[in-house]
């Protein structure tokens, strides 16, 4: 068992725990992936798929689904207020953390992440299936969208930036410097300008994970990684569209106990196109 799970971080469960709860009706396993083929190539028995684009995003407006659509999603997924949702997925739980963040936006907090994600589950030779589970829908509940505690919008980021408060850019170093936005012959990164928000420091999201196992680093290593920051300070994280930064948001909030960390999901695809805002390279 990973040390971080042993230490009782209550927002994580181990693969062993999941294996023991495969038939637990109080638990709903939810796989959310960056690669849309992965779930269908074999998933944990009983797990349903939540697709970021089809299930969580508004089809027209750049925003997430409405509270009513979220209620529909949970109803057809068989998830009630008492259901414990365990998220997991590919790419070191990158998209699993994103799905958890969106669920929390609607007040659904009875959720955890399976440490190590599908990589660890597969590496341990655990059971996989291609069978799509039949889910009994539950009664539709009322969920209210209250994003302010975990999501931050551009005007607040600008004020945060001007106040010199902590901002963490979790993209790759080449994105942070703006080098990748301008690679000749390749499509741009969805932004007219390359660089980062002034004052933001670069800590790529993936450094919080052991790439061999997919597990989060031990708490002591995570504290060292974010040693320049304090759990007491108001902190903003961002990437390109807010998915990678939701992974860092999870680490800071639930593994390191940051009291006020918010995800700027407008991220560089918004900031790098905004008229009149400052950038750094």
């Amino acid at each position: 068992m990973n040390a971080i799970v042993e230490k009782g971080v209550d927002k994580l469960v181990s693969t062993e725990w999941v294996a023991e709860h495969l038939n637990d009706p109080r638990v709903r396993l939810v796989e959310s992936n960056e690669d849309p083929l992965v779930y269908h190539s074999g998933h944990i028995p009983g797990a349903i798929e939540v697709d970021w684009i089809r299930d969580l995003n508004d089809a027209i407006c750049r925003d997430y689904i409405s509270a009513d659509q979220f209620a529909d999603l949970l109803s057809r997924a068989g998830i009630g207020p008492e259901t414990e949702v365990i998220f997991y997925g590919d790419k070191n739980n990158w998209w699993a953390a994103y799905a958890l963040w969106v669920f929390e936006m609607f007040g659904f907090t009875n959720s955890k992440i399976m440490d190590g994600g599908s990589l660890k589950w597969k590496n341990e030779g655990r059971q996989l299936t291609k069978e799509i589970p039949s889910v009994h829908a539950v009664e539709k509940q009322t969920w209210n969208r209250n994003e302010a505690p975990i999501r931050v919008m551009r005007d607040e980021v600008l004020a945060h930036c001007r106040a010199g408060k902590p901002i963490i850019d979790v993209r790759s170093p080449m994105e942070y410097t703006g080098e990748r936005t301008h690679m000749e012959g390749y499509p741009n990164e969805g932004a007219l300008r390359g660089g980062h928000i002034p004052g933001a420091k670069s800590i790529p999201w993936s450094r919080a994970v052991n790439p061999e196992t997919g597990s989060f680093l031990p708490l002591e290593s995570l504290r060292l990684l974010y040693a320049d920051y304090s759990p007491e300070n108001e902190t903003v994280v961002y990437c390109r569209i807010g998915e990678r930064s939701s992974h860092t948001w999870f680490v800071l909030k639930y593994l390191l106990g940051y009291k006020n960390v918010r995800n700027y999901d407008g991220s560089w695809t918004e900031w790098g196109n905004l008229v009149g805002v400052p950038i750094e390279k």
């Binding site: 960056e34 849309p36 684009i53 569209i241």
Partner: peptide, 12 residues
């Protein structure tokens, strides 16, 4: 409906 990152990786 590929994600932006996935689209760019494949196009690249």
């Amino acid at each position: 409906e590929l994600s932006m990152g996935k689209s760019m990786g494949l196009i690249n």
